[in-house]
Design a protein around this nucleic acid. Structure first.
Length: 126
DNA sequence: GGGCTGACCTACT
DNA sequence: CAGTAGGCCAGCC
């Protein structure tokens, strides 16, 4: 899954290509579930680029309609200041999809992508 | 080239 | 659970 992992991107076009992967991964997050920055980075092929995922979001064109709100940090919390407009917007969108916040954080066991897989594996008969 | 800044992460106190 | 420290790496002075 993880390709070469040579380390930092050697060229900016490499980075741009990776950004495309990031958008694709984010678009693949099922409604009502979330992924952490680290997981998105890993699925896009660069496990150490968690911080670059946020960068990729800013670069995303409006027309792309990315479900950016389904990406949260590793603590299951929104990575915006709690009083910011972005925080409120992201939280509301997630709640509309059925994601539940408990004391400001999401239970990743339940709403994370891996959690969703586990849930399927354990609850559905093969 | 050097220094600083992040929609981050892990490990440790 | 909160705070800190070190690591990470592209972008912008």
């Amino acid at each position: 899954m993880d390709r070469a992992e040579k380390g930092p991107f050697t060229t900016t076009s490499d980075f741009d290509r990776w950004v495309q992967n990031v958008w694709q991964v984010v678009e693949g997050i099922p409604r009502g579930h979330v992924l952490t920055y680290g997981e998105v980075a890993r699925l896009a092929g660069m496990s150490r680029a968690a911080r670059r995922v946020g960068q990729a979001m800013r670069k995303a064109p409006r027309g792309r309609k990315l479900p950016w709100h389904r990406v949260v940090n590793a603590q299951g919390r929104i990575s915006f200041p709690a009083d910011s407009a972005g925080y409120q917007r992201q939280k509301r969108r997630l709640e509309e999809e059925g994601v539940v916040f408990v004391k400001g954080s999401i239970n990743l066991e339940q709403f994370g992508y891996q959690g969703a897989l586990d849930h399927l594996l354990w609850s559905e008969p093969l």
